[in-house]
Write a protein that binds this DNA or RNA. Structure first.
Ligand SMILES: [Zn+2]
Ligand SMILES: [Zn+2]
Ligand SMILES: [Zn+2]
Ligand SMILES: [Zn+2]
Lengths: 144, 144
DNA sequence: TACAACCTGTGTGTTACACACAGGTCAAGG
DNA sequence: CCTTGACCTGTGTGTAACACACAGGTTGTA
């Protein structure tokens, strides 16, 4: 039987993350000591390593929870797994593109600001640097 | 004097976002009606448009708050502004790179899974698809 | 037995909203 | 005058995935 800390070492996961996973019910302790300490088996370490693999592939903790719950009922989660990854590939591509646009905006701004002196704010201007950026043509901040 | 909704229309910002900015003190009402409704001037609309410009450039709401507070004290925020954008460019580049790596992992996995059938979970396997991904060589999830 | 180092569970803070809820306001209809 | 309905108001809570802090328990050493 492993304590939280031992389980953390065994599964190469920070202990506070293990505690977080316990809190949200993603993992459950196999037993409980009298003083309230939670105890685990080596099976739980394997479970944790699975969780880290899934996270590495972009699954959210909620999705991982669904997957393990399906698996515990004997239902194959593979179909959902494929769909989730497909969906996430789309999502991620869009996010990357948006972040690259932001990157370009920031780089252009910084370059443009090189020629501009610092300003002193008055009533109708907060920061002329930011205000000098042409940004009124259709906003972004699109999601999922 | 404008109500929250009118301010939202004037500044092209969703009303619930205006209310959120009020809650966190990013903007303050110019006056208050007897029934508790908050009232604003057209200057507040300009402030909101500034906030949207700053967000468009990657500033967080906290940073924007600092900037406007500096500006209200007559101190020039320009120096901080430049530094923040420089820092964010670095940050964003790292995030984009990590997300592109994730993208590649997901695409490779999906391709690899094309040849694999769905599996039925047993005691020592949750999802063989996820488990089949070679992912033990040094984990990522690096931040700031 | 005293002390320090470490470990425990749990409460709260983080970001930028989104949603829900109970109640207030306003114009139209009866 | 009253009611119905649409709309608007402020505010409480939920979101993702932890990070940090805190008070108290445990363990090893002197
Ligand atoms: Zn990873
Ligand atoms: Zn400035
Ligand atoms: Zn934008
Ligand atoms: Zn599977």
């Amino acid at each position: 039987m492993l304590t939280v800390n031992e389980l953390a070492l065994e599964s190469d996961t920070p202990a506070h993350v293990v505690r977080y996973y316990l809190r949200i019910g993603l993992i459950q302790p196999a037993a409980q000591q009298e003083n309230g300490y939670r105890l685990f088996t080596s099976n739980d370490a394997a479970r944790l390593r699975f969780i880290r693999m899934a996270k590495h592939l972009g699954f959210t903790l909620n999705e991982i929870k669904q997957i393990t719950q399906h698996a515990e009922l004997g239902e194959s989660p593979c179909d959902d797994v494929r769909k989730i990854v497909q969906h996430r590939i789309h999502e991620n591509r869009a996010k990357i593109e948006e972040m690259m646009k932001l990157q370009e905006r920031m780089e252009q701004a910084l370059e443009q600001w090189d020629l501009m002196p610092d300003g002193i704010p008055d009533g109708n201007s907060v920061c002329h640097l930011i205000e000098s950026v042409e940004g009124s043509e259709g906003h972004c901040h699109t999601e999922t």
